[in-house]
Amino acid sequence: MSGEFIYLHGFASSPDSAKAKYIRTCFAQANIKLKIPDLNTGDFSHLTITRQLSQIASEFNHDSTPVTLIGSSLGGLSAAHLGQQYPQVQRLVLLAPAFGFLCHWLPKLGDEAIQRWQKERYLMVYHYGEQKQLPLSYDFVTDASQYKEETLQRPIPTLILHGRDDEVIPIQASHDFAQKRPWVELIELDSDHGLGNVMAEIWQTIRLFCQFP
């Protein structure tokens, strides 16, 4: 299938993550163009899901070119919301998508840290792309809380690949999502949130799903 292919990296990650690089190489070898925008935009501190959505939507051609989004973790959650909002999006590949992100992440921080974050407005978060702690505005939480999975009802072909041993977003989150949506196919993998040990398998699955030669 022709069209545009865009990869959305995860939270506190970058276009230079191991996963993004691997997928970029696979696309290059198949002679298919893949865009991997930097969702940090040089300002991770003011990241919001809303900002990610408008940034990616600005990449779409304003004609009827079909778009396939491949999203990892928080990028997967963003991809799903873009699929709901934009008819150009014709296919989704979600790698360990961060459904229920806040309810999995916030409890790990603990009430005290969350209250302090609210009061001080910024929380130091380890950024894997930059390999250092960076401040993140509390606006991220306020913004993220308005994005509900229940609203994702547009029946577009969706492939979810999720590790059974995911320690960040339990695979149950993807099961719950797929269960009520017959257009979603969930493939369970023997892996964790990083999916690093199953990348070759993931690429083969993407190839079949996208009908690449």
Rank of each mutant, 00 (worst) to 15 (best):
S2A: 14
Y7E: 06
Y7M: 11
Y7A: 04
L8I: 09
A12V: 12
S13L: 05
S13W: 03
S14G: 13
S17L: 13
K21Q: 15
I23M: 12
I23A: 04
I32E: 08
K33W: 08
K35F: 14
L39F: 07
N40I: 05
G42S: 07
D43C: 11
S45G: 14
L47E: 10
P66K: 09
T68H: 03
A79G: 08
G83Y: 08
Q85R: 15
P87L: 05
Q88H: 13
Q88N: 14
L92D: 09
L92G: 05
A98V: 10
G100N: 13
C103Y: 01
G110Q: 06
I114D: 03
W117N: 00
V125E: 05
Y126S: 00
K132Q: 12
L134Y: 02
L136C: 08
F140R: 12
V141W: 12
T142Q: 13
T142H: 08
T142D: 10
A144V: 02
A144P: 05
P155L: 04
I156M: 07
T158N: 04
H162I: 00
H162M: 00
R164P: 00
E167R: 01
I169L: 01
P170H: 04
A173W: 07
A173K: 06
A173I: 06
H175L: 02
A178W: 06
L186F: 06
I187Q: 12
N197H: 07
M199I: 04
I202A: 01
L208K: 05
F209Q: 01
C210L: 02
P213K: 14
